[in-house]
Design a protein around this nucleic acid. Structure first.
Length: 226
DNA sequence: AACCAGGACGTGA
DNA sequence: TCACGTCATGGT
């Protein structure tokens, strides 16, 4: 129903017909060949950190600001002063801590020199938790790591699939086990998470969550009474 | 005007 | 391990 979501959005790309509106027109539906450059790869990582507990439309402003100052290049971000970065990423909030997170990650990223980071190495970085690590791995490095966010939990706990109190890894295992396809796995993981977010934004923001959810038509028998 | 957004960290029990 | 407070801005 919603169609391809075109995640992860990029502020500059050569994709054709970005259909989704937004301040950066960066979505690229049905094109899973991104990131194409190291700068785009780094931009996705920066966006994943900036979007923690923040609306992505606010993150877009910060990303545009960063790009305007040419700070989406790793080396330039490493050389920038913290005060400068703080001011530039103010629109997306938490600028004091996120500036430090970006500095730490930029240092890590530059030392990768093209290699794919391990999940554990990412989690050891201050400011990178399980969700941000998986978002970076899935969308920036095309690794098969399903992303679990608050929306995912909201939708699937509504139908009694799992409880919100389950651990992050348990939620992730459920999706990995349910999506055991070798074919197009990365695309499916990327698309499915984006679709969950889109769906949850429509039916799981206002409380009580999910009252108008059209999936009830298919899953009603699984709703657990409380 | 209160609520929340594509979380993570630090603390004390 | 786990529950809870904190971090900041901007849109609805």
């Amino acid at each position: 129903m919603y169609g391809s979501q075109g995640w992860w959005p990029l502020i500059e790309h050569n994709g054709t017909n970005p259909t989704k509106s937004g301040s950066i027109q960066g979505y690229h539906p049905n094109d899973y060949s991104f990131p194409k450059t190291k700068k785009q790869q780094f931009e996705i990582c920066v966006g994943a950190i900036l979007t923690q507990n923040t609306n992505f439309s606010s993150v877009e402003k910060s990303l545009i600001n960063l790009n305007k100052h040419n700070l989406l290049k790793v080396d330039n971000l490493l050389n920038a002063s913290e005060e400068n970065i703080k001011q530039i990423i103010t629109p997306s909030g938490y600028q004091n801590q996120k500036t430090k997170y970006l500095k730490v990650f930029a240092s890590f990223f530059s030392q990768l020199s093209g290699r794919i980071p391990s999940r554990k190495d990412l989690l050891d970085l201050k400011g990178i938790g399980p969700e941000t690590a998986d978002a970076i791995l899935l969308y920036a490095f095309a690794q098969p790591e399903f992303v679990i966010d608050v929306y995912t939990k909201r939708v699937f706990q509504h139908f009694g699939i799992l409880e919100n109190t389950e651990k992050y890894e348990d939620w992730k295992n459920f999706f990995h086990e349910s999506l055991q396809t070798e074919k197009q796995k990365i695309q499916i993981y990327q698309e499915y998470h984006a679709l969950i977010v889109e769906h949850a934004k429509r039916y799981y923001v206002k409380k009580p969550h999910g009252t108008q959810c059209p999936l009830k038509k298919f899953l009603q028998t699984q709703i657990q009474s409380k």
